[in-house]
Simulated scan of single mutants.
Amino acid sequence: MHGEDDQIVPYQNACVKSAELLKNGKLIIYPGFPHGMPTTEAATINKELLAFIES
């Protein structure tokens, strides 16, 4: 999971390669979400994390 608007760790520099390296990696990019998205967008992030864990 990564916010498209993350100014601290731009997703092009970090998460694309990380998702490729993980055996069961899944990348979800949220348009407009910031670096602190687990706090500012907790409802969305928690829903996605739970779905991933249950899959």
Rank of each mutant, 00 (worst) to 15 (best):
Q7C: 02
P10A: 04
A19F: 05
I8R: 03
C15N: 05
K47R: 14
G25Y: 06
E41M: 05
L49T: 03
M37Q: 05
Y30A: 05
P10D: 03
E48R: 07
E48H: 15
K17A: 09
T40P: 04
S18R: 11
L50Y: 12
E54P: 01
G25L: 07
T40G: 13
L27V: 00
A14N: 14
I29C: 02
I28A: 07
L50A: 05
L50V: 11
M37F: 15
K47E: 12
E20F: 06
T39Q: 08
I8S: 08
T39M: 08
L49H: 05
N24D: 15
E48L: 00
T40M: 13
E48Y: 03
I8A: 14
E54I: 06
P34Q: 04
G32H: 04
E48A: 12
A42P: 00
S18G: 06
T44E: 14
I8F: 09
Q12E: 13
E4T: 01
G32A: 11
A19E: 01
D5R: 12
L27G: 02
K23N: 11
N13S: 10
P10K: 01
P38Q: 02
D6E: 09
N13D: 10
L49W: 15
P10Q: 03
T39V: 07
M1C: 05
L49I: 15
K23R: 14
D6L: 02
M1H: 10
P10W: 03
A42M: 08
G25S: 14
M1P: 08
Q7R: 15
